[in-house]
């Protein structure tokens, strides 16, 4: 038996918004420790890794490990039926071929349940090594979304260069070129608005704008985003999900051949 209850169903709505443009379907792996998802986009350029810890749920029970193959368009339809303030419970029997979503209004006067068929998905799991990154940049997530949106007007690629002084995002194309520099914030009253840089070594890497823009769909999940970079390895874009977990996107760099 699997049962997970979340008072704020809006968190789950936001998680779905953050993955549904990048992935068509995905396997939600449920275990005693929580719900995990790992999936590559169809072009195998990026990888999404989602972790929702069991202790972040209001109630959580998972007697046996369960892999739920889910069509994300179908799940989006169901999550649209939930009010933002609704309490959500996901429920499945062991070896089930369906999962049930239950939504309760805050005053408990409206209860609805939706059963969704599960899919059998062939899933490839990739081993992601623990890495010490040369540069770790934390910045407001809305600022990052704005930068990705603005630069994608200029070209298909963004160069992210990080030094101790700051981080520079650049793009160039037919209409011209663009550079956005962010310095580390000196004095911050509000932590959410800070830009901080931890640098061991300078790094400059090129990435596809299109994918960065997909990642920024996670912006409503967190006021801050963390970018981790090392030479010639994938960029990590991480958004914390409240007290419950995180979503990480890995993006393969573009390399001069």
């Amino acid at each position: 038996m699997f049962e997970a209850r979340l008072v704020q169903s809006s968190i789950f709505k936001k998680v779905l918004e953050a993955i549904k443009e990048l992935l068509n379907e995905a396997t939600f792996d449920c275990s005693d420790s929580g719900i995990q998802l790992q999936a590559m986009d169809s072009s195998h350029v990026s990888l999404v890794s989602l972790n929702l810890r069991s202790d972040g749920f209001d109630q959580y029970r998972c007697d046996r490990n369960l892999s739920m193959g889910i069509n994300l368009a179908s799940m989006t339809k169901i999550m649209k039926c939930a009010g933002n303030d609704d309490i959500m419970t996901m429920k499945a029997q062991d070896n089930a071929d369906s999962v049930t979503f239950m939504f309760e209004s805050p005053n408990q006067e409206k209860m609805s349940d939706y059963e969704m068929k599960l899919m059998n998905l062939d899933q490839e799991h990739l081993g992601i090594p623990e890495t010490d990154y040369s540069c770790v940049i934390k910045l407001p997530s809305a600022e990052f979304a704005r930068i990705c949106r603005d630069l994608s007007q200029f070209g298909e690629s963004v160069v992210i260069s990080c030094t101790k002084e700051g981080v520079k995002f650049s793009a160039a194309g037919d209409i011209g070129s663009a550079n956005i520099k962010l310095a580390q914030t000196a004095n911050v009253d509000k932590e959410d608005e800070a830009v901080s840089i931890e640098m061991q070594e300078k790094v400059s890497l090129t990435f596809a704008c299109r994918y960065l823009n997909y990642f920024t769909k996670a912006t409503p999940l967190s006021p801050q985003v963390c970018l981790s970079m090392s030479a010639e390895v994938p960029l990590v874009v991480e958004y914390k999900i409240g007290e419950i977990g995180h979503i990480r996107y890995y993006l393969a760099p573009k390399i001069e051949e």
């Binding site: 195998h44 393969a252 001069e256």
Partner: peptide, 14 residues
């Protein structure tokens, strides 16, 4: 020219 690499190249399939 820069070419897009694939994510499989960096992480091993388990």
């Amino acid at each position: 020219r820069t070419n897009q690499t694939s994510i499989d190249r960096f992480f091993q399939t388990l």
